[in-house]
C-alpha cells in the first residue's frame, strides 16, 4: 500500500453506539432521593427543632440562641483558641520534625519521646492536667535555672534568681492552660506530618541546593519545605478542622470562653436541649466549611509547577505555537 492511498482514505463515520445501561445506579439514586426527602420533611415539620429559638428569638425580645452575646463571645474564643493552639502546634511541630531527622541521636530521641508522650495521652486528660498543673509551682517566671538551689548553696534564703515571675495560678489556668494542652498535643501530630513531608522530597533536591552553596537553613526554607508543603497541607487542613472541634474539650480545664460551654450554659438555664445542640452543630459546620474553602486555595498555591492540568495546558500552548498560533481542528 502506498502512502498516497492511506492519505486519501475517507474518515470513517463517528461511532454512535447505545451506551451501557446502569440499572443498579438508578435504584440507588431512588433510595437516596427517598431518604433525603424524609430528612427534609423531618427538619421542616418537626416543631421540636424550634428553629425560631435557634435563629430568631429564644426569649422575649432576645435574638436567636446562635447569635446571643455569650455564644458569640464563645465563638470568638473557639476561633482564637484554634488559631493559637494550631500556631503552637505547627511551629513546634516543624522544630520537632527537624530534630527527629537530625543526625544527632540525642536530639532525635528527644523528639521521639515528645511525640510518643503527647500522642499517647488523650487530649481530654491533657486539658484537665494542664488546668491543674499550677499546683506544682507557686510562681512561674524567667531566671536562672535551679535559682533557689544556687541561692541556698551560697546561703541566700530569699534568692530565687528570677528576673520576672507571676503567680502560677494566674498564668497557668483557663485559656493559657487550654491553649498549651491543645498546642503541645498538636505539635506531636504536626511533627509526624512535617516529617513525612520532608522525607517525601527526593534527596537530589537538597544535594543540588547544597552543591550551589546554600546553607542547610536555606535548603530547608527555600527548597525542601516549599515542596514538602504539598504533602503537608492536606493533613494539616484535617488537623485544623479537628482542632476546631477539639477546642470543646477545654471546657474541662475549665475554660468558659468557648462556644460549646456557652451553649451548654444556655441549655442549663432554659432547659432546652436539642435546639441548643443543633445551634452548636450549625456553628461548627460554618467554621469548618470556611476552613475547607481556605484549604482548597492553599493547596492550589503549593501545587505550582505540578499536576497534569498545568502540563497539559502548556503542551497545548506549545503545539499551537508550533502550528503558527492556530488551534488545531478549529473551524476557519
Amino acid at each position: 500500500m502506498s502512502d498516497e492511498s492511506t492519505s486519501v482514505r475517507a474518515r470513517p463515520e463517528a461511532i454512535k453506539a447505545v451506551p451501557v445501561r446502569h440499572p443498579a445506579r438508578w435504584v440507588g439514586l431512588g433510595v437516596i432521593a427517598i431518604l433525603v426527602a424524609m430528612f427534609v420533611h423531618l427538619l421542616v415539620t418537626n416543631d421540636r427543632f424550634r428553629w425560631s429559638f435557634i435563629f430568631l428569638e429564644y426569649q422575649d425580645g432576645k435574638r436567636g440562641v446562635m447569635f446571643t452575646e455569650p455564644v458569640l463571645e464563645g465563638l470568638r474564643g473557639t476561633i482564637l483558641l484554634t488559631i493559637s493552639s494550631m500556631a503552637i502546634g505547627i511551629l513546634l511541630g516543624i522544630v520537632i520534625a527537624i530534630m527527629r531527622l537530625s543526625e544527632n541521636k540525642i536530639l532525635s530521641s528527644v523528639a521521639f519521646v515528645y511525640t510518643w508522650f503527647f500522642r499517647a495521652v488523650p487530649r481530654l486528660v491533657l486539658a484537665v492536667l494542664f488546668g491543674n498543673l499550677n499546683i506544682l509551682w507557686e510562681r512561674i517566671g524567667f531566671g536562672l535555672p535551679f535559682g533557689t538551689q544556687i541561692g541556698q548553696l551560697f546561703g541566700l534564703d530569699n534568692f530565687d534568681g528570677q528576673f520576672y515571675s507571676i503567680k502560677a495560678s494566674d498564668l497557668l489556668a483557663g485559656f493559657v492552660a487550654g491553649m498549651l494542652a491543645l498546642g503541645l498535643s498538636e505539635a506531636a501530630y504536626m511533627a509526624e506530618i512535617v516529617r513525612a513531608g520532608i522525607q517525601s522530597i527526593d534527596e537530589g533536591q537538597s544535594e543540588a541546593a547544597v552543591a550551589l552553596g546554600m546553607s542547610r537553613g536555606q535548603v530547608l526554607r527555600r527548597v525542601v519545605l516549599p515542596q514538602a508543603m504539598r504533602v503537608i497541607v492536606p493533613p494539616t487542613g484535617n488537623e485544623i478542622i479537628a482542632m476546631v472541634k477539639d477546642t470543646s474539650l477545654v471546657a474541662f480545664v475549665p475554660v468558659t470562653f468557648e462556644l460549646w460551654f456557652q451553649l451548654q450554659q444556655v441549655s442549663a438555664r432554659t432547659f432546652v436541649v436539642l435546639p441548643v445542640i443543633v445551634a452548636a452543630l450549625i456553628w461548627y459546620l460554618i467554621l469548618c466549611t470556611v476552613l475547607m474553602v481556605a484549604q482548597f486555595f492553599v493547596e492550589r498555591h503549593f501545587s505550582k509547577g505540578y499536576g497534569a492540568a498545568a502540563k497539559a495546558k502548556q503542551r497545548l500552548r506549545d503545539i499551537q505555537v508550533e502550528q503558527g498560533g492556530r488551534i488545531t481542528g478549529e473551524a476557519p
Binding site: Q205, E207, V223, Q227, Y306
Partner: peptide, 11 residues
C-alpha cells in the same frame, strides 16, 4: 555541578 537526574527545583 550538573546531575544525571537534573534536580531542578520543581516549585
Amino acid at each position: 555541578m550538573v546531575f544525571q537526574r537534573f534536580n531542578l527545583f520543581p516549585h
